[in-house]
Amino acid sequence: MSDSSQSPQYGGPQYGGPQYGGPQYAGPPPKKGRGALVLVGVLALVLVVVVAVGAVVLLRGDDHKADSASRSRPAAPESVEFRRVVKAEPGTCDAAQAGVACDSAGNRYSLGKVELDGSNVTQVKAVAGQNSDWYVNLKLDSAGARLFGDLTTDLAQKKPPQNQLAIVVRGRVVSAPTVMSAIPGGDVQIASGFSKPDAEKLAADITG
């Protein structure tokens, strides 16, 4: 990756959940002499609607959980590595040497040791941001969060390309973001003006 300005950047995510409000129902005014019957009918209808809506929400929630469980973690944790970038060079890459890896564009990276790996990653997700941009959000376990916080604290003080952190999957660099600041807490955002397909591809590369 020759141009560090084009490298994605790590930053802490901001989350905001949607706000939900339940519908308000109002039945028609009861006709004279049939008030009790109409009231029972309206209550029965409301009960059916509430039960039906609850079933849809529960089913969607179960489907979402199943999908997340099957795709959110790296399939082969040992094949996902987080390594410091020591040197980055453009051109045709030959990764035959130890400690060297290439990206899909042919950029050559000399890398440091493995600082943490996919076993520390508990979730990987492509998320829509503002202004039609997408990003990839990673969540780390407690050990990974501590390691990542210490690592990014150090990297943020360095100059390019030593402030880049390569994500290496099966020996290939899938991303080498620039670390702008320390990132404690284990919530990691990779942002680079991604389109939806770009973000989904990076998430799929990491999860395998």
Results as ranks from 00 to 15, higher is better:
106 G>F: 04
49 V>A: 09
89 E>N: 10
56 V>M: 09
54 G>D: 11
39 L>Y: 04
75 A>T: 09
73 R>W: 01
77 P>E: 03
85 V>N: 09
86 V>H: 08
47 L>Q: 09
110 S>A: 07
38 V>D: 09
33 G>I: 01
31 K>Y: 02
84 R>I: 02
57 V>F: 11
35 G>L: 09
107 N>I: 00
42 V>Q: 07
59 L>P: 02
114 V>H: 02
30 P>Y: 15
81 E>W: 02
96 A>M: 01
69 A>T: 06
74 P>G: 04
86 V>Q: 12
73 R>L: 11
84 R>V: 09
27 G>P: 15
46 V>F: 10
56 V>H: 06
110 S>P: 00
97 Q>V: 00
43 L>M: 11
111 L>P: 06
101 A>Q: 10
62 D>E: 05
85 V>S: 07
95 A>K: 12
108 R>P: 00
117 D>Y: 13
29 P>F: 11
54 G>W: 03
81 E>Q: 15
71 R>I: 03
117 D>H: 10
72 S>M: 03
71 R>L: 03
76 A>M: 03
46 V>P: 00
50 V>H: 06
105 A>V: 06
111 L>E: 11
67 D>K: 09
63 D>F: 06
77 P>W: 01
95 A>T: 04
111 L>G: 04
113 K>M: 05
45 L>V: 08
97 Q>Y: 01
36 A>T: 13
45 L>P: 01
66 A>C: 08
94 D>F: 05
41 G>R: 13
95 A>D: 12
86 V>I: 14
68 S>D: 15
28 P>G: 15
97 Q>G: 05
52 A>Q: 06
53 V>F: 07
67 D>Q: 09
92 T>R: 12
48 V>A: 15
85 V>F: 03
75 A>E: 06
53 V>N: 06
111 L>V: 10
116 L>V: 11
